[in-house]
Design a protein around this nucleic acid. Structure first.
Length: 875
RNA sequence: GGUCGUUUAGCUCAGCUGGUUAGAGCGCUGCGUUCACAUCGCAGAGGUCAGUGGUUCGAGUCCACUAACGACCACCA
């Protein structure tokens, strides 16, 4: 059963086999876990990666964190489900495939036609999806593959169609016209957050529409002024107050305009002339003014970015060409008052970088403010706000609660239709002015299906419940099956950059569909930046392929390097050195195991883990207490999602306590196998969620069961009868171990034996050596000498024979005295300030009783300590 | 323009509700290494915690302001 471990750990030799072992065990699926019926659930849905590309290091970090959360809960007897999937990422995917086809064949999607194009997309999806799933497995992710989902697969399509129909029935989904961000190149609407702003130079033109119009206006887009129906001024503006309410018929570059002067507080008096030409059809702000003032809306520019029919010589021109022509005409007429070069933000398509054209368009919307009877009169918005502000949903780090709420409170109706082919189809049918909403066409001739698709966030917003069998598992308001067992989920772990895009939508969708939150906690991780602190991106070429670093250093090293040194919500930098350091650590753990397991009798291996081995020496109780204290740090850190702190506690224990000291002790003092095996097993269990492969590999070398489902240890924080401060006491032992090693290396057998007796003999002997390292050693030595004289160099020589040189450095009386004096001074200062605080009536009056008591306790502690120090100084 | 974040050793970062001498990894310096591990060991150097002011017996930690960098949101007609 027991296999010899090689000298170094080679991840590549183990990882694939181990993953298969886990997967074949079936324990990724909570249905196969051996649990009591009332075991609590722990569910995380994997934020589905876009199928546009391979995974990058950011995904690896996400997988490492979530796998850690999930494995820890699985070892703690939760009904643990981590549900995998991928996202169809409608626009991004369509663009990617369009580009690919165009570069390969020179054809556009229109050349191919809808059906053939979608076939190409599906081919692409199948390929990248396979790659992504393979990468995910490589990371060691313990996902339940039996529940694998895709935002556009058959069950999710049904769920989406049903959601759309339900929302339409409730009047939450409606069709309306408004200004949308239109990309003339992609021929698609963009959500506000899909628009990118680019600084660019532009000309701000100041002019009058016509000679007889009293007010001059400023604009960077004179061509849109062909559609102006009003001029807005600030009602406080003295210059224009007299004109408010007046209407003018005028001729603008040969086109007739009817302009009304209106008042609006949004107009800034300091900008330009302080008067704003209102173009309702081509500016969102202007549209709102026009709605409020019932102004006509004249559409000037069409979906291709060209001037529409009916604008004389301008019709058919591109916006840019028309602009030049309008400007020229204004100059000729002497109406141009100023042309100033300014820097402004141009809205651009986040996909193709083309300038956005704001256009009025018929689109489907979700009404976020509509009160709903199913939500007791709350709207989607107010329900989503209440959940977060009432603490039903919490955020980590907390500051994102505020960001979520800010965004939610300013939320406008959500445009969900997209003019692309790849995505969820919209179950709507049109015949002339008639609209019918349903999955099948209504009876009668001439109905045409809506050719648009849904915003990708519509389907991903349903992710927590569409993956758990909604709507089949939800009848008459009662959940069943997976939905009943796993929803609401416990944690949503995702990047902070999609807090608003995704998280907020999930909350609204879940409240609408189920009347409950989708998750209790939102954990937001930061972005993985490159070594220089820049975002990794394909265009910059600074991305790192996780598979490459995994091949080089192993998945565990990659995971640990992403977990350690990273804090919630903060970005962290990637560097290969970090991974290398973690690889070294993993090898260390491997070799610790190798040392403990080599030449080990099988009877030690089979010792049950629920029986505490007997601590025979101070070193034994010390290491056990260190183990337990590490366990308790790990538990509390993990319960607060402080992954880095948890890992550091284990790291410190493993390397600085176990390897550096206890293993050294075990070399000079045999018979520690029982404790060594006990510590090792517990350590492997606790390391497993962080670095599952290497721990399982070691476990498998001497165990039959799977470490993955081994029960998390539940020892007390301390064992009875151990010294109060095992750390301090053990420093004595540590010093002696060094001396023993030195003595042995020089073949000084008898001194080594004496030292060994001192370090590992019955506890009572060493307990003489309390208080602190040096003093302890001195006391021990003194007691052995049975003399009152302070241990001089000569005296120590008597005890330790020829070993003097090994201990002299440690017992320099002068150094020790200075140290104690300094410590005494520090304590005096502290005691003084504590006393004055406790005498301060204001403090006593205001501070809560428990705090005052704590200060008193502290004072007492310091005083006791000071007395001890003073006593030893006096001696 | 609004909101938020960051600033701690040469580098990358920890540091919870203020409390004894501010920590880690990497790097650096010196010494060592057949006997679990050179993917190693031991020892060491290196910090006025961005700046200024304040609260407090006590501030890396709390407050105010300033500076640099970064992110997000809004948007310039």
């Amino acid at each position: 059963m027991k296999n010899e471990l090689a000298k170094t750990y080679e991840p590549a030799l183990f990882e694939d086999d181990i993953y298969h072992l886990w997967e074949d065990s079936g324990f990724f699926n909570p249905d196969n876990l051996d649990l009591p019926a009332n075991a609590p659930s722990y569910t995380i849905v994997l934020p589905p990666p876009n199928i546009t590309a391979k995974l990058h290091l950011g995904h690896s970090a996400m997988l490492a964190i979530e796998d850690l959360m999930v494995r820890y809960r699985r070892q703690n007897s939760y009904r643990t489900l981590w549900l995998p999937g991928t996202d169809h990422a409608a626009i991004a995917t369509q663009n990617m495939v369009e580009k690919k086809i165009f570069s390969e064949t020179g054809k556009t999607r229109h050349d191919l036609g809808r059906e053939a194009f979608l076939e190409e997309v599906n081919k692409f999806v199948a390929e990248t999806q396979a790659t992504i799933l393979r990468q995910t497995r490589k990371m060691g992710a313990s996902l339940d593959w039996s529940r694998l989902a895709f935002t556009l697969d058959e069950p999710r399509q049904q769920a989406v169609q049903r959601m759309f129909l339900d929302m339409y029935k409730e009047g939450v989904i409606y069709r309306g016209e408004r200004i949308v961000n239109w990309c003339p190149r992609c021929h698609s609407t963009l959500a506000d957050d899909e628009v990118e702003y680019k600084e660019q130079k532009a000309f701000l033109y100041t002019f009058k529409y016509s000679p007889d119009f009293p007010i001059a206006i400023s604009t960077t887009r004179p061509e849109t002024k062909l559609g102006d129906t009003a001029v807005a001024v600030n009602p406080k503006d003295e210059r224009y107050r007299q004109y408010i309410g007046q209407e003018y018929q005028l001729d603008f570059c040969g086109q007739a305009l009817k302009i009304k002067i209106i008042a609006d507080y949004n107009v800034e008096m300091d900008f330009g002339t302080g008067a704003l030409g209102v173009t309702p059809a081509h500016s969102a702000v202007d549209w709102q003014m026009a709605e409020a003032q019932s102004l006509p809306k004249i559409k000037v520019i069409d979906e291709d970015g060209l001037i529409r029919e009916g604008f004389g010589k301008f019709s058919g021109l591109s916006a840019i060409d028309a602009r030049e022509k309008v400007v020229a005409s204004l100059r000729n007429q002497g109406l141009m008052i100023g042309e100033e070069e300014i820097v402004n933000n141009l809205s651009c398509c986040y996909r193709c970088d083309s300038p956005i054209e704001p256009l009025p368009s018929k689109q489907w919307f979700i009404a976020v403010d509509k009160p709903l009877s199913r939500l007791n009169g709350k709207s989607l918005k107010t329900a989503a706000i209440a959940a977060a502000s009432g603490g039903e949903i919490t955020f980590l780090p907390e500051r994102f609660n505020k960001r979520y709420l800010d965004w939610m409170e300013n939320l406008h109706d959500w445009c969900i239709s997209r003019q692309i082919w790849f995505g969820h189809s919209i179950p709507a049918w049109y015949r002339d002015e008639e609209i019918y909403v349903g999955e099948e066409a209504p009876n009668g001739e001439g109905w045409i299906k809506d050719g648009d698709t849904l915003d990708t966030w519509f389907s991903s917003g349903m992710w927590t419940f569409s993956t758990l069998g909604w709507p089949d598992n939800f009848k008459n308001g009662v959940k069943s099956g997976d939905l009943a067992r796993f929803h609401p989920t416990q944690v949503l772990e995702t990047g902070y950059e999609i807090l608003t895009l995704w998280v907020s939508r999930m909350v609204m969708m879940s409240f609408f569909a189920l009347g409950e939150k989708p998750f209790s906690q939102v954990y937001l991780h930061g972005t993985i930046l490159d070594k220089a602190g820049k975002k990794m991106s394909k265009s910059k070429g600074n991305g790192v392929d996780p598979l490459e670093v995994i091949a080089k250093y192993g998945a565990d090293a990659v995971r640990l390097s992403l977990l350690m040194g990273a804090t919630p919500g903060n970005d962290s930098r990637y560097s290969e050195e970090k991974i290398e350091a973690k690889r070294n650590f993993i090898n260390k753990l491997w070799n610790i195991s190798r040392f403990i397991l080599s030449d080990l009798d099988d009877r030690f291996l089979s010792a049950p883990l629920d029986v505490l081995p007997e601590a025979k020496t101070l070193a034994d109780s010390w290491i056990l207490n260190e183990l337990f204290s590490a366990r308790s740090i790990v538990d509390s850190a993990l319960s607060e999602s402080n992954f880095s702190i948890a890992a550091e506690a284990l790291y410190d224990f493993t390397w600085n306590k176990l390897a550096d000291w206890y293993l050294e002790a075990a070399k000079v003092e045999k018979g520690k196998e029982e404790i060594l095996v006990f510590v090792l097993k517990n350590l492997l269990i606790m390391w497993h969620p962080f670095i599952p492969y290497v721990t399982e590999a070691i476990w498998q070398s001497f165990n039959e069961g799977l470490l993955m489902v081994e029960q998390w240890p539940s020892w007390p924080e301390k064992i009875e009868g151990a010294a109060d401060e095992p750390g301090n006491d053990f420093k004595v032992v540590q010093e002696i171990i060094v001396a023993i090693r030195n003595a042995r290396s020089e073949n000084k057998v008898e001194p080594a034996r004496k030292l060994q007796a001192l370090a590992f003999g019955p506890k009572s002997e060493l307990l003489l050596a309390q208080a602190s390292l040096i003093k302890g050693l001195r006391t021990g030595i003194e007691s052995l000498l049975k003399t009152d004289a302070p241990p001089t160099e000569a005296a120590i020589k008597v005890v330790l024979g020829d070993t003097d040189i090994y201990l002299l450095g440690a017992v320099d009386p002068e150094k020790e005295k200075a140290r104690l004096q300094k410590e005494a001074e520090n304590l005096l200062g502290l005691i003084g300030s504590l006393k004055s605080r406790l005498e301060n009536q204001e403090f006593i009056g205001r501070a809560p009783a428990n705090i005052v008591q704590a200060e008193k306790d502290k004072l007492e502690r310091y005083e006791t300590e000071l007395a001890k120090i003073q006593a030893s100084l006096a001696s």
